[in-house]
Design a protein around this nucleic acid. Structure first.
Lengths: 198, 198
DNA sequence: CAAGTTTTGTACTGACCTATCCATAATGCT
DNA sequence: AGCATTATGGATAGGTCAGTACAAAACTTG
């Protein structure tokens, strides 16, 4: 009935996500987004309402893919809870090693957005809060499983341990963006895991 | 010999620092800086070469004041090493509780800048790296003292523990910006300290 | 093949951005 | 007082920003 799209919306979203991830929201111009996606301005504004809207969808895309793979690891009941958390750390370190630009890690779009936008954009903050709540809930559940399977012996309550693991992940991402290499990140992860068996 | 300045350069720097801290580098306009400092554009550009230069000096100002008070705590040999680290955590939590805007913590300008600029501005990255190296060195020294005074019993090497503590601090700041309240931050700190006595 | 509908490229808009220019004001020194 | 020097305010420049308008292109369906 009408002219079809010349591009794949998901691929465009992915390219936009990558750009926001690399440069941050403010430093990314709509021209950058055109260049990264290969689309013209019209196509972008025809498909997405605004730069903000595109960003929010890119962030949602990031959250969906990233949190999904992380939750899959945490739900893998073939391994003991503490080992699943160790695997999660490994995956995160792999990601930090993999996603780089200009010799530096890009960190995590969720963390970066928490820093850059959460304080000023309530819609974005709400997205991040939902994701955080989901990850904390899952982590609490894993901690409790660990308590049962014996791999978590700390007497701290599950909520505190979950928040701690989450903070440790954030800290590793900041360390990575600050220049820490793989070995440094691995040592941080090892020490963090010690706290679970205190 | 000439007309004197109507303003205190240090106060202006402090106001600029606060603005960059709240909004980030990119989202802060030179007009914002005029409003925050109370200066006219001429005075700003007469005193500082550019927005970037003003930012770098504001960041240096932040690093000087913040790192100085933190190092003072870590050097206070009246207390055992682990207690000094606990006090450092408390100071950081106080700071997160204190420095807020719009109901949200501002986090730490050093962390925020690592996220927003370190990947794209090598001069800024160099400043952050120097500060990080200094803090890690001090933390290593404290860990080693803790080993001697018995307050740190973990067998992990001092470098790993230092990096871990630093990452934990970063993670607490991200958590705070993500909405964690004081109780949550305190529980994260407690768990992190567990790792030192593993 | 033609009508109808959507996409796409180009040009454009008005606002805001960093930075500078210049005239005027305000001081210290002689 | 008068001169040299610096600070300040206001206007302005030139560029980039997000977003829009519009016409041509491209496709589906009848």
């Amino acid at each position: 009935m009408a002219r079809p799209r010349m591009f794949d919306e998901e691929r465009a979203l992915d390219a936009a996500m990558r750009t926001f991830w690399e440069k941050g929201y403010e430093a990314t111009s709509t021209q950058d987004l055109c260049a990264a996606t290969g689309l013209g301005r019209s196509s972008i504004y025809n498909t997405f309402k605004s730069k903000r809207d595109l960003f929010e969808r890119a962030l949602a895309h990031y959250i969906d893919t990233t949190t999904a793979t992380q939750l899959a690891v945490l739900e893998d009941t073939r391994h003991r809870a503490a080992d699943r958390i160790r695997t999660l750390f490994e995956i995160i370190i792999d990601g930090e090693t993999e996603h780089r630009a200009g010799g530096r890690s890009l960190g995590c779009l969720t963390v970066n957005t928490t820093v850059e936008l959460a304080g000023r954009d309530s819609a974005t903050a709400a997205m991040l809060e939902r994701d955080l709540a989901r990850r904390l809930a899952m982590m609490r559940a894993v901690i409790e499983e660990g308590r049962r399977d014996g791999s978590v012996t700390s007497r701290r309550d599950a909520d505190a341990l979950a928040r701690f693991i989450n903070a440790a992940i954030g800290g590793m991402r900041i360390s990575s963006q600050g220049g820490a290499d793989r070995a440094a990140l691995e040592s941080i992860a090892e020490v963090a895991l010690d706290a679970l068996t205190h």
